[in-house]
Design a protein around this nucleic acid. Structure first.
Lengths: 259, 259
DNA sequence: GAGTGGTCTAGACCACTGT
DNA sequence: CAGTGGTCTAGACCACTCG
């Protein structure tokens, strides 16, 4: 009758242990940020072998409750506030208010946003980018790759591509900070009035590179969002690829019912 | 120099084995639908223990390349054609053409769609549904729950909720098949002309129930899509919750750049 | 160094699927 | 029944982190 839940249900031992740990986390006996007992502690406590307690912890990791650092231990994840990404962020009125889309949204969510520019400069259009921008493969384009942080932790990586003949006349696009309203505001000031944006949403499990770039746990789903910005002349004047941790975002779209 | 890739890199053995299997799958040496060699075969082939080859297979399962059936074996997944879900599917012109959104899209994708109605009838509004429909919690609403199949395999489960006072005057909504153009067409015929739809996209790992309902593998990400349909009178006349296997869909949204 | 997680083995037994 | 995957053990060794 000890505190150890060793009752035999039909359930595998490793799931019983996992469930017990889930209970402790939900009841804040293991509060966010706290270290989960080490494998050897758990082996003693549950009278199980290392393989079994490891499987239990792997279970918690898979459901995103815990993250594990080699040589240190497993820690209860602090539930990050969900960031909301609304299609409204592209409204012209928001740009006129002088805010870039990302900062406006982050402020609204009450977190401290920051941006790190990884690269701004010329690049050769890959097959996919060339197709989306309707330029020849290998053509020079302007690439702008940024990493966005919220409260200091990386949440989102985005890369924009613009046709060189458009970008070359807009010096602000070569700056790290393109100025109030972001690059869309600059494009519109230079006569490229936007007509429509097309976004696609894809989901898959993160690759190893993305895991390290966004410091995720293995097995985390990520959202791959692409956007094409079409001007009123019918030309695609910018495309953007964004990668973000799926569990930290809610995307919102308003769709007119017309036509 | 045997066919066995036992070169020692720094990589763990189970990942080497996994990579080798991935190669065989990508080069169609293990074609879709084929059974992966059994654990004991792999143990012999790679000279590894059961635990190690199991971890290798678990890796393939996590990346969705393979699915495992207890007592039978692991099988290379048939890559299902990706289904595209475009916001255009709500255009009025499509409804007028007499097609429901789902069927129209599936046809375009070249797959044989079918629908199974799980429930049509009254239900009590949960807190969340009540909030979205602006009715009191517990109020009677019409619920329509369907399971969608593509080529016989379940891909998507959706539940619509409509306020009772609206639904009660539209007898087709109580039928399994609401008729050409779907329920939105019926709503518009009865004076509820739609103004705007708001969709939200959330992603998370599938729960055990969803795994069985959509016959997924554990650890698969799923997309939870919610939609609120607002009529020109400003009232939300329908809300819908959809769950789908994330790796089988690409969502597409067209966003007007105006205002 | 002591303590942590990460990999691997050899063997055991159980549970499910077919014939 | 034989063959498959699923669980578990006991012990070994390696790799990372921190004082």
């Amino acid at each position: 009758m000890g505190p150890t839940p060793s009752r035999d249900s039909g359930k595998p031992r490793y799931l019983q242990i996992a469930d017990d740990l889930v209970q402790q986390i939900e009841h804040q006996i293991l509060p966010p940020g706290e270290q989960v007992p080490s494998e050897s502690d758990l082996m003693k406590k549950y009278g199980a072998s290392q393989g079994t307690v490891r499987k239990a912890i792997a279970e918690l990791r898979a459901t995103g409750l815990v993250e594990t650092r080699h040589g240190k231990g497993s820690y209860v994840k602090r539930r990050p506030p969900v960031r909301r990404k609304s299609s409204d962020r592209f409204r012209r009125s928001h740009r006129m208010a002088g805010k870039a889309a990302y900062l406006a949204e982050a402020e609204q969510a009450g977190s401290k946003p920051s941006v790190s520019v990884l690269y701004v400069g010329p690049a050769e259009a890959s097959e996919e980018i060339a197709e989306r921008l309707s330029v020849p493969v290998g053509e020079r384009v302007l690439a702008r790759r940024r990493l966005y942080f919220s409260d200091g932790i990386p949440t989102e990586e985005a890369t924009s591509y613009l046709p060189w003949d458009i970008a070359k006349d807009i010096p602000e696009l070569f700056e790290e900070n393109p100025g109030g309203g972001g690059i869309y505001a600059r494009l519109e000031e230079h006569g490229h009035r936007l007509k429509e944006l097309t976004e696609t949403v894809r989901v898959r499990l993160a690759t190893k590179q993305e895991i390290s770039a966004l410091s995720l746990s293995p097995g985390s789903p990520i959202i791959h969002l692409t956007r094409n910005a079409e001007s009123e002349s019918g030309r695609v004047v910018e495309v953007c690829d964004t990668f973000m941790a799926a569990d930290q975002f809610v995307l919102e779209y308003r769709i007119p019912a017309g036509d």
